[in-house]
Amino acid sequence: MREQYHKQLEILHTELILMGALCEDAIVSAVKGLLNGEAALREKAIGLEKEIDMKERDIEAICVKLLLREQPVAGDLRQITAAQRMITDMERIGDQAEDIAELAGFIAEHGDLDPVGSLHIGDMAWEASRMLTASVDSFVEADLAKAKNVILSDDIVDSLFIKIKGELIDYIAQNPGNGETSLDFLMIAKYLERIGDHAVNIAEWVVYSITGSRRIPD
């Protein structure tokens, strides 16, 4: 019985890694579509959102099967509960990557891409993606230190958001006619900040799966 359970758990881990990879691909495609003005990348990010939704349903089915067949307790139950919470955050990350791609498309058609080169949006996207990947890895590896590092990394994403906001304020002061585009850029940065928050949520569920509490260990 335990051997079968562990096989199902390995499948769950594999599916979580695949869902995390889809989310990372969506983030990267959306932001590259913005930075490079490539419509194909923006469309890819939008299409990936549907794949992420499907993956969420597949993983939820695995979790339900594990709960019904194995009736896990204690640490095993926490692992499955954490996985169910994690995929909710990853699904929302997919939604936000889609939102970024749609805003990037609007900017490409109606806005001014001049400020994008001076912004730290690429750095912010890279950090948020790194946090997401590390949070999923920390679950699969049951690595408490890695999960804690993701939680602490949230300060980096927050500081980049503040930096971008300051850059946009300076840009608006010099280009008052491009205020609407600047607000779109600010919204994209806000979506990236939320993606970082979701990565933190995932890491906190990893902490819970290992310790029984979402509180960051000392």
Results as ranks from 00 to 15, higher is better:
residue 139 F to L: 11
residue 192 L to T: 11
residue 109 E to Y: 09
residue 101 A to S: 04
residue 186 L to W: 06
residue 67 L to P: 13
residue 20 G to E: 02
residue 130 R to Y: 12
residue 196 G to W: 00
residue 193 E to D: 08
residue 108 A to L: 07
residue 4 Q to D: 04
residue 172 I to H: 02
residue 73 V to Y: 04
residue 205 W to C: 05
residue 65 K to W: 00
residue 24 E to N: 11
residue 203 A to W: 09
residue 193 E to P: 07
residue 7 K to E: 05
residue 31 V to F: 01
residue 57 R to C: 04
residue 24 E to Y: 08
residue 69 R to T: 13
residue 124 M to N: 04
residue 172 I to T: 06
residue 148 K to Y: 04
residue 104 A to S: 14
residue 14 T to P: 02
residue 127 E to G: 01
residue 131 M to K: 09
residue 174 Q to S: 06
residue 195 I to A: 01
residue 84 Q to N: 11
residue 135 S to E: 08
residue 196 G to M: 02
residue 162 I to P: 05
residue 153 S to G: 06
residue 163 K to R: 13
residue 108 A to E: 04
residue 136 V to M: 09
residue 156 I to P: 03
residue 174 Q to T: 10
residue 72 P to D: 03
residue 46 I to A: 13
residue 90 M to S: 09
residue 103 L to K: 10
residue 28 V to Y: 09
residue 162 I to V: 15
residue 87 I to L: 07
residue 56 E to L: 10
residue 86 M to C: 08
residue 201 N to H: 13
residue 76 D to R: 12
residue 4 Q to L: 11
residue 82 A to N: 10
residue 27 I to Q: 08
residue 51 E to H: 02
residue 212 G to Q: 01
residue 72 P to A: 03
residue 45 A to Q: 08
residue 69 R to Q: 13
residue 115 P to M: 06
residue 124 M to W: 07
residue 43 E to L: 15
residue 181 T to R: 05
residue 133 T to H: 14
residue 104 A to G: 15
residue 35 L to V: 05
residue 83 A to L: 06
residue 127 E to W: 13
residue 15 E to R: 15
residue 216 I to V: 14
residue 205 W to L: 04
residue 182 S to K: 00
residue 123 D to I: 03
residue 122 G to H: 14
residue 108 A to I: 07
residue 110 H to I: 04
residue 191 Y to S: 13
residue 57 R to E: 14
